[in-house]
Design a protein around this nucleic acid. Structure first.
Lengths: 202, 202
DNA sequence: GTCTATATCATGATAGAC
DNA sequence: GTCTATCATGATATAGAC
């Protein structure tokens, strides 16, 4: 037939939609089955329990949320390039996955341990130590202000991610619809890069 | 007896804890009753349905999240003072209510209409028009750079709120426990104020 | 007002036919 | 592999005694 995606793929896509949108507690196996065009029985045939299905979706989401930023953080390039890369790539990713950060951070908050098991912990700390080191180096060279690397990173990541989580509020403030929101996020890429550089320039 | 709080107050406090922590979907009437030291029957005697109880908690939370910032935005004071006030007061409020933004933004996302009914919409748009106007005025006077008022506000509010929502991630990065997190947020107040002023200074 | 017991319903999960 | 029918559980909500 025209649609050659396997049933498992259809389930995973439907589950991603529903879990990302409603979270674990709000998601219904019934709705996932409907959206995948199958019935509950078959859903349980592929993924024995809601927990197992969720686990598949969550770990993919956590990975998408973290892996790319880690690989950028570890690059041996000048700080300003690193900032540009992070802003461009991360915002690009979020524009394609606008529900991702809310989903991941919510579920992570309910169960912070999901991390430790996921071997990410060490990678994360290493990557950030690297980032902080390059901030310190540039500051000592006098090419930027003295600034705490962790704070700088928190500022950057906050400005990038928050609008997607605070979207309902922001759309009221800006009086914007979904199309306008996307356009604003596009402009925001350039804005953030400039804002950060203005803040750290000596 | 020693505890003279009324039953209704005990319920509201317990419901606030549970709803803020677990959201509407994850909250259980049973748990709220236990935490209030009563039983489910009595809970339904005071608040007929889960929805009604939730509504009471949510509208109080939305109000706490928005009202103070609105009143600051409308003050007729110089921009830099306005920034200081917002950062200080809003971060102070969040340190006392760390679960608030996640709760409000999540529930708002599930049901964006809760806003329109809440008469806030107009107040919000007015307050931000005011803020944007004062940004523009200072920029035209040459006391700060030319910068879009909405973007500036988004930056500020992002840097303030995001750490509380992204806390599980941030604590991994910083390797910090709860006490340390609080200390870092305290330092962050000063950091954000300086960061913003550095970014907009001409 | 407060409690216990129960009705009602929704949901995750299983059994079994095809 | 896929479906229908059913079970078992747990949650909201109500009834009624005290």
């Amino acid at each position: 037939m025209a649609n050659d995606t396997t049933t498992e793929q259809k389930i995973l896509e439907a589950a991603e939609d529903v879990f990302h949108e409603k979270g674990y507690d709000g998601a219904r196996m019934q709705e996932i089955a409907e959206q995948a065009g199958i019935n509950k029985g078959l859903l349980h045939y592929y993924f024995k329990t809601k927990d197992k299905l969720f686990e598949a979706i969550f770990s993919a989401a956590l990975n998408r949320m973290i892996s790319r930023i880690l690989s950028i953080l570890e690059l041996e390039i000048p700080l300003d390039q690193k900032i540009d890369l992070i802003v461009d790539q991360y915002m690009g990713m979020l524009m394609k996955n606008p529900a991702l950060p809310r989903f991941v951070l919510n579920e992570l908050n309910k169960n912070p341990d999901q991390f430790i098991a996921k071997h990410f912990k060490k990678d994360i700390k290493d990557a950030f130590a690297n980032f902080s080191a390059s901030v310190k180096k540039e500051a000592d060279n006098g090419t930027i202000k003295q600034i705490d690397g962790h704070m700088l990173f928190m500022n950057m990541i906050s400005m990038i991610i928050f609008p997607f989580i605070g979207r309902p509020l922001i759309q009221v403030v800006l009086g914007s619809d979904n199309a306008e929101f996307k356009q604003i996020m596009l402009e925001r890429k350039e804005h953030i890069k400039k804002f950060i550089k203005d803040a750290i320039r000596v």
